[in-house]
Write a protein that binds this DNA or RNA. Structure first.
Length: 553
RNA sequence: GCGCCCGUAGCUCAGUGGACAGAGCAGGUGCCUUCUAAGCACUUGGUCGCAGGUUCGAUCCCUGCCGGGCGCGCCA
């Protein structure tokens, strides 16, 4: 029995008490089930009696008595104790807990999937780095977290589309093109231009692809460098992301919004809604009507639309494509956009609370030998996605970036994440998986297959270490769904570390395979199922994070 | 000045209103002739930044302070 199943059982017990007349209260929608740290507090515990005490108008312990009386009769429940201020400590029947191992192995890759977010259509935008250079470390954090979040949301039943918005219009791209042209013609890096070795490399590729390019007038050259340069740079970005295991459903070009008249359409819609005015020759959106700090310019006095105007058009486009909710992940240096983005959604006539979600990720600092790695865009010492992968590998990079809460700044220590020791959590978790894989290979060599689910006596799994492991495994679906709902992939990583530790402790205490001349027993089989179940959860969890689950290490 | 994030063990960090606040690392003591020691056991270590408030109950919610990070363009 998993906590979710137990939650339903407890809820039914409350309903039964109400039915019987021993409790007068509205039956709650959901019952919270805890996994107590203290084994004396049973397999699971619930605070439902304390929650219902006030609405029932009775002391928590009396409510607890009424619920416990019903709960004791429930299938799979071996014992119920009332403790402390009114906790219900529940002990499951041995087999009710043990069957979790069978359920897990049987479900395989599907174990952990739920439908809690079924029916939601989400557009998940992340990375969205401009094709003027490689994906920097901040974008890399979002590549890891965003992709993991996408997998989590999908696992929880949501319909998710990953989207990468790229700016291929405007002055930043112009500066990129100018920088390429300067590099190709051996001219100095222009004012506000881009430096770094990649500029020279891209410039050379453009020249190679376009014979006679350097003989053309500057204006024509510039255009060719822009088009080809963006193309090449973007291919480079896609390649590095793919190497990181991140692929998007849609790569959305800002330029297409300009070319299709979508900006004018968006401005017209905002004007219809009555939120647009003109001052000093510019067109403004009155975002202050929607709690923004100041109004925002849509069209500059020189007639050029702003980036914000494109944001408006882009938001409208996403909504017209049928997404209920637009989720955007930004770095902490973009915190200032939240207010104006909410305002634009409201000005469009939508509800920012339901149609928009902006997730802010704090900055990443790199550390080597305890010293901060100095980063300078001008000096070309920016650490980007590929540098990080080269330094510590894709698995460690993804895990390191995904295991921290996005609200927390991270100091990513390049040495710690390459160490093959216990202070490297990704190895700790992967090692547990490889260790089980090795054990299962050993079982196969001994001619000990798992066999049929019906033939396993999981009630034999009765030691503390075994039931600890079963409870940890049972928790996984809830970890996934709550991590999805809270937009917190790091919870999965932390859970996996705990699960790995629980497994290592089990392994240390419980011999699985027969030694020497010993014969396999029913307990051998039960423990093999438990090991296989653990491996399934470790693999499913690592997959959610985009990290491999190695068979050997 | 205003907005967002952070402040929890010596260090790096978990902790969706519940029971004595947790993990890894670092320090100390042990455990490998048989399933991966990249492991495990025991042990040292806390005014959860400070002060109020809400609650049966607060590390968590609210208010105010203190300290650190980031941001506040007719840039993109």
């Amino acid at each position: 029995m998993t906590p979710e199943q137990l939650s339903d059982v407890v809820r039914s017990a409350v309903a039964a008490a109400v039915e019987r007349g021993t409790l007068a209260v509205a039956v709650p929608d959901a019952v919270v089930i805890d996994r107590p740290k203290n084994p004396e507090h049973g397999d699971y515990a619930t605070n439902i009696a304390m929650r219902l005490a006030k609405p029932a108008g009775r002391p928590p312990r009396e409510v607890a008595e009424a619920v416990a009386a019903e709960l004791r009769a429930a299938e799979g429940v071996a014992g119920v104790e009332i403790a402390g201020p009114g906790f219900l400590n529940i002990r499951l029947a041995k087999d009710a807990l043990g069957r979790v191992a069978v359920q897990t192995v049987t479900a395989g890759e599907a174990y952990g999937r739920t439908d809690v977010l079924a029916g939601q259509r989400l557009n998940l935008e992340f990375v969205s780095a401009n094709p003027t250079g490689p994906v920097h470390i901040g974008g890399t954090r979002w590549a890891a977290v965003g992709d993991a979040l996408g997998r989590l949301l999908t696992a929880s039943g949501a319909e998710v589309s990953r989207e990468y918005y790229f700016n291929d219009a405007g002055s930043q791209i112009d500066r990129f093109a100018t920088s390429l042209m300067a590099a190709a013609n051996d001219r100095p890096v222009p004012e506000d231009g881009y430096a770094g070795a990649y500029i020279g490399e891209i410039a050379a590729q453009v020249v190679a692809a376009e014979p006679g390019l350097l003989e053309l007038p500057d204006a024509e050259q510039q255009e060719r460098f822009r088009v080809r340069g963006v193309e090449l740079m973007f291919a480079e970005i896609k390649r590095s992301l793919a190497g990181f295991g991140v692929v998007f459903d849609t790569y959305f070009s800002e330029k297409t919004l300009h070319d299709s008249g979508a900006l004018e359409k968006a401005v017209a819609r905002l004007r219809e809604q009555g939120h647009v005015y003109e001052t000093d020759g510019a067109v403004w959106l009155r975002t202050t009507d929607f709690a923004d700090d100041k109004d925002r310019v849509l069209v500059k006095s020189d007639g050029e639309p702003t980036y914000f105007a494109a944001d408006c058009a882009y938001y409208l486009d996403k909504r017209e494509r049928g997404f209920d909710k637009v989720v955007i992940m930004l770095g902490a240096d973009h915190t200032g956009y939240v207010g104006r983005y909410k305002a634009l959604v409201a000005a469009m006539g939508d509800d920012p609370a339901t149609n928009l979600e902006i997730l802010i990720g704090q900055l990443v600092n790199l550390v080597r030998n305890g010293e901060p790695v100095r980063m300078s865009k001008r000096a070309g010492t920016v650490v980007n996605l590929e540098d990080l992968v080269d330094a510590i590998g894709a698995d460690a990079a993804r895990y390191a970036l995904a295991r921290a809460s996005v609200d927390q700044q991270i100091d990513l220590d390049l040495d710690a994440w390459t160490r093959k020791t216990n202070d490297n959590p990704v190895f700790y978790v992967q090692y547990a998986h490889a260790r089980i894989a090795s054990l299962l290979r050993g079982a196969a060599d001994l001619g000990l297959p798992l066999g049929e689910a019906a033939d396993v006596d999981t009630a034999l799994l009765e030691t503390q270490r075994e039931s600890d492991l079963l409870r940890a495994i049972a928790e996984f679906p809830q970890v996934v769904s709550s991590a999805a709902e809270l937009r917190a992939p790091h919870r999965v990583a932390r859970y996996l570390e705990e699960l790995a530790g629980t497994y290592h402790r089990f392994y240390d205490a419980c011999r699985v395979l027969p030694r020497g001349d010993e014969e396999a027993t029913p307990l051998t089989t039960a423990r093999l199922w438990l090991c296989a179940a653990t491996a399934t959860v470790l693999a499913n969890g690592l997959t959610v994070l985009g990290v491999s689950a190695p068979e050997r290490m």
